[in-house]
Design a protein around this nucleic acid. Structure first.
Length: 949
RNA sequence: GCCGGAGUGGCGGAAUGGCAGACGCGCUGGAUUCAAAAUCCAGUGAGGUAACACUCGUGUGGGUUCGAGUCCCACCUCCGGUACCA
């Protein structure tokens, strides 16, 4: 009884592909066109594959199989983003080494993916935790360590484009004479300060209760730990940073050249956050130390201005000057006070004796707050007056300098001029502390000027009064520039990348720190020799937190942690580890040459396979992963290790798959229904799952049949363990087969769209595959054999037309990644041909090839049944012939004033006159006795008569 | 608040400015069967009719056009992202 039996067919072909290495991409660089189809590799979690994974994976698999059949060399690899917190947490709880857990999970994922029949070249599999992989991750880190960014360097890359700004070897960094004079240590420090990988003391999320440092993602919005809900503090610790900000401009502008969704490009551009404005210097008389005694504030200001008009705008302002960044230099006349961040280096010097206590208290509190606390808009603005004043360079007015945490030290210069009339935040602050507000921009309409932040016309602005905003900006920058008190400036929201974690399960940094006799770092460091790579993680048995923010690696065995070189210098290893992002920044390169011991990738292979032609993954990586990977790629590009400026030519985000749609009703404590429309925000009653037959649609919403005043909530929710709506792909494979799972996920709707799961939908595509099976195979026979209707005869015109239309539609839909419509075209083909008593092989064979990228197991089985001995994986993709698709006669609609009033059959190639003549007969009743004012005839489409009377 | 995406039958969805709802699910009826499952056939937007006809219908209101789900303007709702970046 050979019915369609996925459980027999699928393991058979998976074994065949394995044995024959069907999808092995040759190691050597091939000839001809290539296609690199990449999936965002998964983190192998303990809970196994989720139905969201196979969605993108099936899409790239369809493209890969389709391209192979078109004679293209395909790179289609898979691997594991295997470092990560859960394995380490598990180790803390159970003592099982993270490596053990990780590789066990990888085995599960591999088994699950293999059961879905993806055409990966498994010989290229890599895990970011593999020691040979870690070696090259560390090697790339050393490249970053050995590089500085030269913003003024103009050069032409291997892509033939001229750029300004280049990552260059640190040895090429020019050392200023005054640095050189101060000796080797200062030179070394100068170099260290310019490296793309550098150290800083950045605040981290330290959770005393858990005894560990947390990543930002592990801290909730209200500043508690995600696990356990314990308070989290900010603590400054020595950290590694990557100077991604040097690449901000190129990361933004080079997005223009990639084929990505505009929404993702926009997300990245917003994240980079380029803004253009000016830096302006404000002279602070109280900061002037010595030499000015006897001069009044305004006298010393004039003296300073005089000096500036000679010296021009300096790279670093003097100790007596507050430098601000503003995007609205045109509002300079409206600046009524200044604000500096609590962390600003001038805080202490600006604070007068009588304000000292208040300022210290304020800054201490601000330091404890997380960024999230500080940016909470619901809270009132806070701040404290320093007691000092600064002088507005355009009009000599003295304005007070405040400290407030709404100004961030990490953006711009950490200081602002406040223009409360035309900035919401400044206005709020001014109202809070009763500071003056001066209008300097007039709105183009009747709206009030105060609070207006758009462009208008200047008022109260001295010589500039009456100037439109745009022009004013240009002119004031010119003026400030000529006076040496300001200049045009560009700023980015993007911050440098905090690259170290206080974790065990990550790549160790290949860095040695010199230590003194007490074991303290001297500040001198040296990279691990390339020949010494990789730096392996030390074996440790105890993963428990020690209650201090020291990384776990600082408790590593001494022989790992320390070394003494020949001349007696003692060194300690870096004990931070790299974040999970590190491995995913370059895995797409390693796939092309996964076993290379001499280089992270062979240049020839890089040149051939890169860039990735199609990269599919979730939107959650739209900013961080994709920005980090692009950054590394650009550094490697500048250093000449890769030849294309962008790693991912085309990007597609697959949509989220939600759980099955649910109907939910609400009841109060007494069991009375509450309409979903009247649900209070603080609803605390029962949510009740409602059966579909108890509900009907009324207008826009679903209501209870028994009581139509009660609206029922109908929606699909994100799959989650707590909700209990998680679908396990293994279950679908065992109940319906991998081909059904693949086909269903592609049939659900457009790839990019969020869509709810439906079990009966899975059943539907399973029924389709069973129909395909019966169309070709005899499901009543004892053995697997061809259906009697399948015959080696010439197909008729009708059959050929259906076939060629299907080939055309499926081919074009695959190219567009419109898989749902491709599948419906194959369903239409099957509906037509299944109904015929004679089904020529010559139409079934191309059809099986069309189906094969979607349902490869069934297709291989049918291909074999149709008499082929070789796998269809490299069979030639069917070509369509337009001439076989033409119909001799077609039916078109006939409209009267745009409304369909009849239809008529005409010859397919009928000209307009013939169409109109035929159409008139079809709507004779309507046009009789009427004037035809206008006639529109679209060949092959429709005829429309516009009549009068 | 700002940015992005989306609103089409009971549901998922389809439609180069040209017959709205392809295809699938669900539902109804029928065939097959001792019966069921499976399968096959027919129907299935709403109103209306004995049946046709006809009328209405793509979130709402306007507009452009011979003709609008599709283009333009205004608005509403939902989903996602983001958050004092001067």
């Amino acid at each position: 009884m050979p019915r369609y039996d996925a459980r027999r067919i699928e393991p058979k072909w998976q074994a065949y592909w394995d044995q024959h290495e069907t999808f092995r991409t040759p190691d050597e660089v091939p000839e001809g066109p290539k296609f690199y189809a990449l999936d965002m590799f998964p983190y192998p979690s303990g809970s196994g594959l989720h139905v969201g994974h196979p969605e993108g994976y099936t899409a790239t698999d369809i493209l890969s199989r389709y391209k192979r059949m078109n004679g293209v060399n395909v790179m289609h690899p898979m691997g594991w983003d295997a470092f990560g917190l859960p394995a380490e947490q598990y180790a803390i709880e159970t003592g099982t080494h993270p490596r053990v857990t990780t590789y066990k999970n990888i085995d599960t994922f591999r088994r699950q993916l293999k059961s879905l029949g993806f055409s990966y070249d498994w010989s290229r599999e890599v895990a970011t935790t593999d020691i040979e992989y870690v070696r090259w991750t560390q090697w790339i880190f050393l490249q970053l360590f050995d590089t500085w960014y030269d913003p003024g360097f103009t050069w032409t890359g291997p892509d033939g484009k001229e750029r300004t700004g280049k990552g260059r070897p640190i040895a090429e960094l020019p050392i200023p004479a005054e640095i050189e004079q101060q000796g080797d240590d200062v030179v070394r420090q100068y170099q260290d300060d310019h490296r793309l990988a550098y150290q800083s003391h950045a605040p981290v999320n330290w959770c005393p209760a858990l005894g560990t440092v947390l990543a930002n993602e592990e801290v909730t919005a209200d500043g508690k730990s995600e696990r356990g809900n314990h308070p989290v503090e900010r603590r400054a610790l020595r950290q590694w940073m990557l100077r991604i900000t040097s690449y901000a401009e190129r990361l933004g502008s080079e997005l223009d050249d990639v084929n990505w969704p505009e929404s993702v490009k926009l997300l990245q551009r917003n994240w980079i956050g380029k803004s253009i404005g000016a830096e302006v210097d404000f002279y602070c008389p109280s900061l002037e130390s010595g030499g000015t005694s006897g001069l009044s504030a305004s006298e010393s200001f004039e003296e300073w201005k005089q000096a500036r008009s000679q010296s021009k705008f300096p790279a670093q302002p003097e100790e007596s000057v507050l430098r601000v960044y503003t995007t609205r230099p045109d509002t300079l006349y409206g600046a009524t006070y200044m604000v500096i961040a609590p962390e600003h280096p001038f805080v202490e010097r600006l604070t007068t004796e009588e304000n000292k206590d208040a300022v210290e208290e304020y800054c201490r509190k601000a330091g404890l707050k997380s960024d999230l606390d500080r940016t909470d808009l619901a809270k009132e603005k806070t701040g404290v007056f320093t007691g000092s004043y600064a002088v507005n360079p355009v009009n000599g007015e003295q304005i007070p300098v405040w400290i407030a945490d709404y100004v961030l030290i990490s953006y711009g210069t950490g200081a602002i001029m406040a223009v409360p009339a035309h900035d919401e935040r400044d206005l709020e602050f001014a109202q809070q502390f009763d500071l003056p507000v001066i209008e300097v921009v007039e709105t183009p309409d009747d709206a009030p000027n105060i609070g207006f932040t758009g462009e208008g016309t200047a008022i109260n602005s001295g010589e500039f009064t009456g100037t439109p905003t745009k022009e004013f900006k240009r002119k004031i920058i010119e003026k400030l520039d000529s006076e040496g008190v300001g200049t045009k400036a560009v700023n980015y929201k993007l911050r440098d990348w905090l690259f170290s974690r206080q974790r065990y399960w990550g790549e160790p940094f290949p860095i040695w720190h010199e230590i003194d006799d007490e074991g303290n770092l001297t500040g001198k460091m040296t990279p691990v020799e390339e020949s010494e790579l990789p730096v392996e993680l030390p074996e440790m048995e105890d993963f428990k937190p020690k209650g201090t923010p020291e990384p776990p690696l600082s408790f590593a065995p001494e022989e790992w942690l320390y070394k003494i070189d020949e001349n007696g210098t003692r060194w300690k290893r870096e004990t931070n580890s790299m974040p999970q992002w590190a491995g995913s920044c370059w895995y797409y390169l390693r796939y092309c040459d996964p076993k290379n011991d001499d280089a992270f990738i062979d240049p020839e292979k890089e040149k051939y396979w890169l860039p990735v032609d199609l990269y599919i993954g979730g939107v959650e990586h739209a900013v961080l992963h994709l920005l980090y990977a692009r950054f590394w790629h650009k550094v490697l590009f500048d250093l000449g290790h890769v030849t294309c400026p962008e790693p991912f030519q085309k990007l597609v985000n697959q949509g989220m798959i939600l759980g099955e749609a649910e109907l939910t009703g609400f009841q109060d404590a007494e069991g009375n229904w509450i309409s979903a429309k009247e649900l209070p925000d603080n609803f605390e009653g029962e949510t009740v799952s409602v059966a579909a037959e108890d509900v009907e649609k009324q207008g826009e919403s679903f209501v209870l049949k028994a009581n139509p005043s009660i609206a029922i909530d109908s929606r699909a929710h994100k799959m989650s363990k707590s909700r209990g709506n998680v679908i396990n792909p293994d279950d679908i494979v065992s109940d319906y087969g991998a081909d059904s799972l693949r086909l269903y996920e592609m049939f659900m709707g457009p790839l990019e769209q969020t869509k709810p799961w439906s079990m009966s939908g899975v059943e539907g595509v399973f029924r389709f595959l069973a129909r395909v099976w019966r169309m070709v195979a005899d499901d009543r026979a004892e053995e697997v054999q061809l259906n009697d209707a399948v015959q080696d005869v010439e197909p008729n015109e009708e059959q050929l037309r259906i076939l060629h239309k299907t080939i055309k539609a499926v081919t074009e839909d695959i190219e567009k990644l419109s898989f749902n419509t491709a599948i419906s075209r194959m369903m239409e083909f099957t509906n037509e041909i299944s109904g015929q008593d004679i089904r020529p092989k010559a139409v079934l064979e191309p059809f099986v090839l069309l189906l094969s990228p979607f349902a490869p197991h069934l297709a291989e089985e049918l291909w074999e049944l149709l008499g082929h001995e070789e796998s269809l994986a490299y069979a030639e993709w069917p070509q369509f012939d337009e001439s076989k698709m033409v119909e001799s006669e077609i039916e078109i609609p006939v409209q009267i004033k745009g409304k369909v009033r009849g239809r008529v059959k005409i010859a397919a190639d009928a000209d307009q006159d013939a169409m109109i003549a035929a159409a008139k007969t079809a709507v004779a009743d309507y046009i009789e006795g009427k004037d035809i004012v206008k006639t529109i005839a679209v060949p092959g489409r429709m005829v429309n008569f516009v009549i009068k009377g």
